[in-house]
Amino acid sequence: MTKKLILFSSIFAFLIFLTGCQSLTVLDPKGPQAETTADVIMTSIWTMLIIVIVVFILLIVMLVKYRARNQADDYEPPYIKGNKWVEIICVGIPIIIVIFLSVITVKSTYEVEGKPKGYENDEPLVIYAASSNWKWHFSYPEENIETVNYVFIPTDRPIEFKLYAYGPIASFWVPQLAGQKYAMANMVNTLNLAATEPGEYMGRNASFTGEGFAEQTFNVTALPPADYQTWIEEIQATAEPLTEDKFNQLLEPGRLGQETYTGTHLEFSPPPTTHHGAKESDGTENTEQEMNDSMEDSMEN
């Protein structure tokens, strides 16, 4: 019994520790999208903690109180069929909790899928992020530059990452700025984020892509707009141009350091034509919709 108590208290301590520990990457947001997800996570932890505590207390009470050793030898447990009210409570409370969490989920999901809060009216900076085994290629179509395995972004401006892949499904993830989204070969996904503070953030592919997966990381550096502009101009002035041959070399499976080029691969190796989640989507959105519809059909059969 004591061991159960130890177990219980250690889990409790663990959760307290968790809530106090704001240094965990995901819970240390530097932008509105990540802040929304961090808030949702904390709310759900607290809500779930209530359930966990109720279950633990009930369990401990039952186990201690109704233990055979604590009862008379001739005690014969009664036959109890069930009680309507108990069952209504057992169903009702979880339903209320689920409704509460559903509201939060729907609201926050729309929030993180849309433009970052507070920047709704700003013109977003579009950056194409393409995954290849085991690298990330970032193309800035407006600035006409391309980087490998690192990306600079301006703070206080919404960024629209257009994600796709050369090869296996990868998942673009900068935990302190926003949650993940898949980069896939046959369509372009859009990830919205914004950084409120300048700094260096860890980014990586979170979806397994084979041998070099563990090292498929990139750095995100958020700079104040003026510094960002200086950086752009510097690159435009100094970097080598990206040729098709060079790009095909970069696509070869393997691991690369950080590289910088002028020009982008978008001209000679354009991204897939199917777009998702983008407002200015070019009308091919129904592919996925159809897919889900007929999946549901097949389930009904």
Binding site: I41, S44, V98, L101, T105, G179
Partner: peptide, 21 residues
């Protein structure tokens, strides 16, 4: 119960963007 409630947390799509993978 702990495994289960974290499942509910994972079910919340927006938060799952951070838990996924």
């Amino acid at each position: 119960t702990i495994g289960g409630v974290t499942g509910v947390m994972l079910a919340m799509a927006s938060a799952d963007y951070q838990y996924h993978n």
